[in-house]
Amino acid sequence: MAEPMTAMPASPQPRQRRRLVRDLKAMPGFTATAWLCIVTLYLPILVLIAFSFNENRSVVLWTGFSLDWYAKALENDGIRNAAWVSVKVALFATVISTIAATMAALATTRTKPFIGQGLVYGIINQPLMIPEIVTAIATLSLFALVKKLTGLNGIGYLMLAHAAFCIPFAYMPIRARLETMTLTLEQAAADLYAPPLKVFTLVTLPLLGPGIVAGAMLAFVVSLDDVIITLMIAGPGETTLPIYILGAIRRGITPEINAVSTILVAVSVLLVMLLFIVQRRMQR
């Protein structure tokens, strides 16, 4: 038995690698590029935030810390009205799109694969695939036609348009959540005498909860941030905060805009951070 061992020539000790490379994966310059990206992405926003606290009107030179511009912004009726419109529209769009997206996600993950499934995915994701400006003018054309035919006006058009483009954003995390939830849990509930409605309310819905919350938050942020579609279809008195800001920038740069912008950024960042926490919970 020992024969094959001795038959092999005693191999010399393999020479140790002499190269003192700590991390073979590292590439020269990549770290610097990554930091450059972060600086590029954040520097402008940080400058904007900093100048929103500047007491000087010039937006160029830093003279001292002040909250005056926030006070001015909050007193401004135009800004307050726009903020209220933004919140109204975003809330409506969030509720409608989250409900529709949840139902659609259940249909695409909790029933057997069906003919036309690809088409359904295509339709749901359609608002993501077409340039926003095209959707904007197309929606404008439709709404103009409907307004002419029915004579109906109002903020409902804007709300519906937001609901439509929020659906794919709400749909993504809900579907992802449903796909990681194995059907076994629902089958286990049915096995333990739960009728279909109870399976849904006691097992599917509670487990889906974080996905729905994530979807709703994304929808809210996306609606709150929209410019192009709103710009095209919003009627008089339907100015949202981003549209107000765009108008103000066109009129000239003031620290007041910086203050409002900072508030809007803060709202989005807070929501997205919350979302990250929710998703981390989900992974556990």
Binding site: P44, I45, V47, L48, V221, L224, D225, V227, P242, I245, L246, I249, I257, S261, L264, V265, S268, V269, L271, V272
Partner: peptide
């Protein structure tokens, strides 16, 4: 996830 308009304005 932050407003593209505001980011562009910041730039």
């Amino acid at each position: 996830w932050t407003n593209l308009l505001i980011r562009t304005y910041a730039m």
